[in-house]
Design a binder for these strands. Sequence first.
DNA 1: TTGTATTTTCAAAATATTCTGAAACTTTAA
DNA 2: TTAAAGTTTCAGAATATTTTGAAAATACAA
Lengths: 168, 168
Amino acid sequence: MKLNEAKQQFIQSWGAIGTQWGINRTMAQIHALLLVSADPLSADDIMEELQISRGNTNMNVRELIDWRLVEKVLKAGERKEFFIAEKDIWKVAMRITSERKRRELDPMIKVLENIGEIEGDKKDKDVKAFTDTVGQLQKFAKQADKAFDNLVKVDEHWFTGTILKLFK
Amino acid sequence: MKLNEAKQQFIQSWGAIGTQWGINRTMAQIHALLLVSADPLSADDIMEELQISRGNTNMNVRELIDWRLVEKVLKAGERKEFFIAEKDIWKVAMRITSERKRRELDPMIKVLENIGEIEGDKKDKDVKAFTDTVGQLQKFAKQADKAFDNLVKVDEHWFTGTILKLFK
DNA sequence: TTGTATTTTCAAAATATTCTGAAACTTTAA
DNA sequence: TTAAAGTTTCAGAATATTTTGAAAATACAA
């Protein structure tokens, strides 16, 4: 299998998987392209490689930067911006996890907090069913929130060596 | 806050969160409705409560059953089918996790497996960049796969008591 | 059987999301 | 300054997804 062939296959497949993840196809493709590129690419490189418009490229690169999966790189003597992806897959996974938590778990916690006390007979089976489910969800959401925070925190400390120092 | 008011708020918010999760709004709403209902509901009940069509109701209830979040219930003397949601939030979370793994991680593993050996100079930086990233992804995906399987497995055994028996 | 209640399917309509490309804006070098 | 290179924005077009509702299929009682 030739390199370019394999690259193209990887990029296309990654785009398809992206949609399953609820992620924009183009965003996933640009990420894939940058992940397997040795050098930083410019917007024009990306447009050329993926056959997409400048606007689309710009929007999705910006989104990838928001997710902290891609960084802007400046080359000496060049006016253009270049882009490079974080290559450490563990870090990539942590950042995607953080972002998904922010988009999926945090709004859930907010919704649950905003549900007020229910008026009426607390022994009523309908009132019970509601408060019981909402209560369980609240408990679960808070636990999950802590678990994710710890996962990401431990990971950051691992890299900076903070945890090892605790054992000295 | 009145019960019906709170229910309606919960259902609408859950629908909105669902879309963030990459889940169909109606599916999330039906799930929310069943989660906070004391008794099983019929398709007509769901249509009435959420103001949606029969086709939409049928499709999404079926999808929820596929996810093992909802079960069909038959009432004596009634010809209609009724539906009830799994109320144990931990079980719900495990089932959603399993389904997401199936939809998100499994296709990723498949894609990575299908990428063949790259022809050409293995010292070339472009070849290196590609094989290195794909290699890292493969390693990560397999670890994640095992981790999720174990999570779900431990959980099932926990409920059936299999793990406690191991310590006897 | 036949008729009635119920569920399922699916083409077309409605809605939502993504993409394009050109204009507006910004940055930098001369 | 000016102008050229580059980036961003966003209205409208293209795509994709979801929803409706009526017809077909199925299940059941008489």
